[in-house]
């Protein structure tokens, strides 16, 4: 195939092509490198990848998402680190086992995100100072007993996990130009959902409340209340891409099941508003 001809045609239709790809010479170099490595049949795929990259989101967008995710992971990592270390808070045995497992995952996510930001030539933002009382630094917010009241600790954990799931979900589309970053984000996203499921099961047992389930029903906070409602608003939808899920195709799917079957995204602005009281 005549690569020079393709690029010339491309240039006619899109004069800015060299700003998208780095330069004509760069393109030629890419092709030379590719054709050395790839069989001809694989070239169209490689071509697709190159143009997807060129016309996809900029690295700036990707880095922005990663910094946003890093902020949330800093929050979670410090929350569980402090919770696991707080005297007489988390019972020994299965509960402490679960909290340390989750703590270690969140710390691993912090490290992975920092490494990825560096690999993309960015500088990881520093860890914010947190106020887990949700008092914006006063230390006297509505959650001030979070590290002495186990039920409250689990309630905040549930909210952080469910919010985290929604936060990653909301950013997936912004990562489509970088397959490695997108896949890593998806692989974190499902881990947060596993955490959410388990924390919810812990609350169910701790409060002897069978209404608390591993999944989100409607926009129910699981008895936590108005303080965390913003983390659940929007979860009550029963229509997906204009398809009504309730009793779909004659199946007995209740409103509750229809809402539980799909988790909903949050925008970064919504998430930042939710975590704002925790950041000094």
């Amino acid at each position: 195939m005549n690569i020079h001809h393709i690029i010339t045609e491309l240039e006619k239709a899109d004069p800015e092509v060299y700003e998208r790809l780095d330069s004509r010479r760069g393109v030629m170099k890419s092709f030379a490198k590719m054709s050395g490595k790839l069989a001809l049949a694989a070239l169209p795929l490689a071509l697709g990848g190159m143009f997807k990259k060129a016309y996809g989101q900029s690295t700036t967008t990707i880095l922005g998402v990663l910094q946003f995710a890093l902020k949330l992971e800093y929050l979670e990592a410090e929350f569980y680190t402090m919770g696991a270390a707080a005297p007489a808070l988390v019972p020994a045995g299965a509960p402490m086992g679960a909290i340390t497992t989750i703590r270690d995952h969140e710390n691993a996510h912090v490290k992975l995100l920092k490494d990825t930001i560096v690999a993309l030539a960015g500088t990881p933002e520093a860890k914010p100072v947190f106020d887990f009382s949700a008092g914006n630094g006063s230390g006297n917010g509505p959650l001030k007993t979070v590290f002495t009241d186990y039920a409250l600790f689990l309630a905040v954990a549930q909210t952080f996990e469910d919010t985290g799931v929604r936060a990653y979900k909301g950013q997936a589309a912004n990562l489509m130009s970088n397959n490695d970053v997108l896949t890593a984000a998806l692989n974190i996203h499902s881990v947060e959902a596993r955490h959410a499921s388990h924390i919810r099961s812990m609350r169910r047992v701790n409060l002897s409340n069978p209404a608390i389930k591993p999944w989100i029903t409607g926009k129910d906070t699981g008895g936590i209340g108005a303080l965390v409602q913003a983390s659940y608003d929007g979860e009550e939808v029963t229509t997906q891409a204009t398809i009504n899920i309730v009793n779909i195709n004659g199946q007995a799917i209740s409103v509750n099941a229809a809402t539980e079957a799909f988790d909903e995204p949050l925008t970064s602005a919504q998430v930042l508003a939710i975590v704002d009281p925790f950041i000094v």
Binding site: V191, P214, W215
Partner: peptide, 13 residues
């Protein structure tokens, strides 16, 4: 994305 996190909740349970 809306579905996979629900599957992950199932998996964990």
């Amino acid at each position: 994305g809306k579905i996979v996190s629900v599957e992950a909740r199932h998996a964990a349970l």
